[in-house]
Structure formats: C-alpha cells, structure tokens
Amino acid sequence: MFGFKTINTAEINLSGDVPELEVQLNDLYSSMNIQYPKFYKMNLLCKLGFLTCEKLIPNDWKRDVQPAPDKIATIFFNKYASLASDHFHHKYLHEDQLPSPSVFVYTLPNILNGELAIRHGWTGYNAFFAAQNEEEMDYVLHNARISQVFDYVVTGWVETDLSRKKIFARMKLMEVTTNQSPLKDEKQVND
C-alpha cells in the first residue's frame, strides 16, 4: 500500500482577455526573478503551469532531498485541454492565413509536461488527463502510481478557461509514502 503526503502547494488565479493575461503572466515571470527565455515562447497554459510550478518547488527541496529525476512524475488535469491555442490555430484557418508551427505544437495539453520535464530535467512518468471535476484527481493519481512507480509527483489542475476569461492553476508537490509490511509482500512476489 502507498499514500501521498503533500510537501507543498502553489496557486495562480488570473482573469482578463488573452492579451491582458499574457501581460499579467509576463509581469509575474519578471517579478519572480527567473532566467528562462524559453518562457516567452510558451502558450498560456504552459506559462501558467510553468510559473505555478516555479512557486511550487521549494528552493532547497532539490538540494536537500536530491530526488532522482526519473522518479518525479508530472500528472495534470483540466477540462478545456489546450483550448486557447486551439483557438489561435483555428483562427488562422478561418481567416485563410498560413498556420504557425509554434502555435500548432501547443495545441496539445501535455506539452506542459514536456516543458516542465525540460526545465527540471524530469524524465519519469508524465500524463495529462481531461477530467470532469477535481474529485476525479485522487482516484486517477492512485491508479497512475499503480501503473508505474514514482517517488514524488507534481500534480494539479491547470486551466485556461477563455469563455469565462479566467485562468487558474492549483498544484501540489507530493511524496509517495509506503508502509513496511506491503513492501515485504512485494519482495516476496519478486522472489
């Protein structure tokens, strides 16, 4: 058996039209004193997830814990996938303009997992689930951990809900906790 223990949480909530949101996210990036020019190439969803994750990972955590990069999973959820980028790609088509490769690549929600993998060197389990509501998250997280072993997970809801002019991310850094006896069982199975 295993469980999850929360190490840290982080949240970002912003509202406005897309250009306003871009400005707000860029301002937030500047105020956080991060040197990562790739940030400016990202779409709304990735910028939002990236900054929330920067707030989530405590400065001393990586140094003190030295987690194995392949044992840190990223598992994210939302309802509207990459809707903001879908909108822009579709706009090109609708207006009969040439679509842009840099927009199209971001029409996949899991690019967020990819961006965070590159930023932090995380090479383990990564998944993006489209869920109806946040109650499904714990259930999915548990199943995911049965499907593949990891020690830590960066998880949460990351949404760019343009129809309500709202973007928000709520993330958790969690440690997978195990107790002794089932571990022995596992060993017996392996033997």
Binding site: D70, I111, G121, T123
Partner: peptide, 12 residues
C-alpha cells in the same frame, strides 16, 4: 508491463 518516460529534451 509498461513504462512511460520523458526525454526532457525538446517539446516537438
């Protein structure tokens, strides 16, 4: 068995 990994190298 199955296993998922990430290259942590490039998005596309």
């Amino acid at each position: 068995n199955g296993f998922v990994s990430n290259d942590a190298n490039h998005i596309s």
